[in-house]
Design a protein around this nucleic acid. Structure first.
Lengths: 333, 333
DNA sequence: AACGATTCGTGAAACGTTTCACGACCCTGT
DNA sequence: ACAGGGTCGTGAAACGTTTCACGAATCGTT
């Protein structure tokens, strides 16, 4: 970056014949006489002046940048989040610093530090690290993970999602339901999907079971479960609610391997709302998380002026969407 | 962000009993006597000092941040790019500013401006905007789009990819090949996929045709083409090379609708290497772009010290990967 | 017509770094 | 023992903004 070549506020002030402070005011939307404002704008235009946001950041403390911390950026749900948060921030004139941590606790903590050190105006984080230290110096909004009343958390209505899944599977005629889940056991909001499932099943007297695995168990126990629960060529559990779409895909594959037909023999519902390439077609029936709303709300809370009375948990409504790929009726739901 | 609460270099200097400049040197890896260095480090540790990168950015001109500009972040290829670029930058101690433009030319130009104004150290851009003005003040690396000899471009070997697709389809026994493409006609590197396809077909005397559509045409012409090229229940073109995986998915769906079997009746190869959730399973047979290498190389060139003799175009090797979903053998290839 | 209140542009100080000319100190060679 | 050269820590100046106390100008009131 060539230096000395960029015009500064001082140059603009000289060109416009006004004081330095006046120029500053113009670029900070502080009321200034219209004729002055115009002169400054013209001068800035002709000089090609642009505010140096590092000088601004240094002096004013606000930098116009917020950070988003994600485990990774390739998972479709996270990618959608990154996209929407970026747009929501841009709409408010903010830039987005994206950091992927690989879910490594050290890396995450390091990222938070980097971010503090970088003096971003705020941090939105989706992290499963239970021991994460969040500096009280930087506004923080957590997604999908409740850190306690002091840290605002935005999440889907995971409990309601579990409930919805049960309702839909029931509507589709399923009699016996199974809940599948794999993943690190962390105190995140997504845990509540199980709660919603169980509670609703119990309330309605629906036969059900759950199979919750750790990451290290791998997916095979699901296959074993499915294989061992076939009677007379038909599955004992005719409705399967998977904790994520990803798991749902595996389950669909396993069912096919086992010769079970979807949806004739068994119905499958996932969670997340992973779409094909951003259009409105979903790979499988799923509880869709309102990603755009999550992003918008998080940004909204993050940038709120009055930080004295922030909500501690915001649950956004999910929706059931039948799967329909372009391969019409493939999953049949 | 509370102010006045953060310790500064001056505080560290006082605490350590050294001069301001010495502290600065320690944090810039400029040689300093070991005893001094240790004293500074200890003092910084005990005060919880962190370099204020906005002050650094202001004074030194380097900010430790690079920007990545993408049309969006949800497309799997772009998402993978964002992920890998972020990691590559992090490995070098840089942060990544991500901006999504929605491919709107104005937005893109606006982003470039914002980014200049933000004084990032460099910009990596994937943009199809032919009229984009790139400021010579900021180091720029283009991905997938050749702007001329003055702007370094990193891309997959798209021509080679086209060639590879023809070779693989031929190996699989295909006799007549079709190339499908949809998307804005821009002078990007991906154009060369067509060139590689055609050239190779001609060289080897393989019967072939191409069907290139504009975005506004939609996908239906492909369906029409496929329907009109069936004879005796078998497709006249038994090998289809699609410009992107996305298109390949549509084509697979259309083939199924038309009652044509993959791979018995017709083989399909896509381009990009879209994976399921970051593991090594691909949805369909495809020419895989080396995303990690593209990211690494782009960052490498962007941050190169000596900017006097930069390459103008770097093509990275692609690989053919048979599709295999977890739904074993679904696409059969 | 004169005075107080209000509005609004002014310019210097400060933000926390990096950089660089300077000088203190030490080592070597005669 | 002294001069010359080299090493290395020092501290002031500068980076481009924002902020704020100040004073000039304007307006309304008595």
């Amino acid at each position: 970056m060539k230096r000395g070549t960029m015009p500064t506020m001082k140059d603009v002030a000289r060109e416009a014949g006004v004081a330095l402070g006046t120029v500053s005011k113009v670029f900070n939307d502080i009321p200034v006489g219209e004729s002055y404002r115009q002169r400054v704008l013209d001068a800035a235009q002709s000089l090609g002046y642009q505010v140096n946001s590092y000088a601004r950041g240094l002096k004013a403390g606000r930098t116009g940048t917020a950070a988003l911390i994600l485990p990774n950026a390739y998972d479709p749900y996270f990618a959608a989040l990154a996209d929407n948060v970026c747009q929501a921030l841009a709409r408010r004139g903010y830039r987005m610093l994206l950091t992927v941590t690989g879910s490594d606790p050290d890396a995450e903590q390091q990222c938070i530090r980097m971010v503090e050190q970088n003096k971003v105006d705020g941090v939105i984080g989706l992290t499963y690290n239970p021991a994460l230290e969040i500096s009280p110096d930087v506004p923080f909004v957590s997604i999908d993970r409740y850190f306690g009343p002091a840290v605002p958390c935005v999440a889907s209505d995971n409990f309601g999602g579990g409930q919805l899944a049960v309702e839909k599977l029931t509507e589709l005629g399923c009699k016996r339901l199974a809940f599948f889940r794999i993943g690190t056991d962390v105190p995140g909001e997504p845990d509540k999907r199980l709660g919603g499932f169980q509670t609703t099943c119990q309330q309605r007297g629906i036969e059900h079971t759950t199979l919750v695995l750790n990451d290290r168990d791998g997916y095979e126990p699901f296959r074993t479960f499915l294989r061992e629960h076939i009677q007379d060529g038909r599955p004992e559990y005719d409705g399967i609610f998977c904790n994520t779409d990803r798991l749902a895909f595996y389950v669909l594959a396993m069912l096919e391997d086992l010769g079970l037909r979807v949806p004739e023999d068994v119905q499958v519902v996932g969670f997340d709302g992973v779409r094909q390439f951003g259009n409105d077609v979903y790979y499988c029936s799923t509880i869709v998380q309102p990603v755009a709303q999550i992003a918008e709300t998080s940004v909204d809370i993050l940038l709120r002026e009055d930080r004295s009375d922030l909500p501690s948990l915001i649950c956004l409504p999910v929706a059931y969407t039948p799967g329909g790929t372009t391969r019409d009726g493939e999953h049949g739901q």
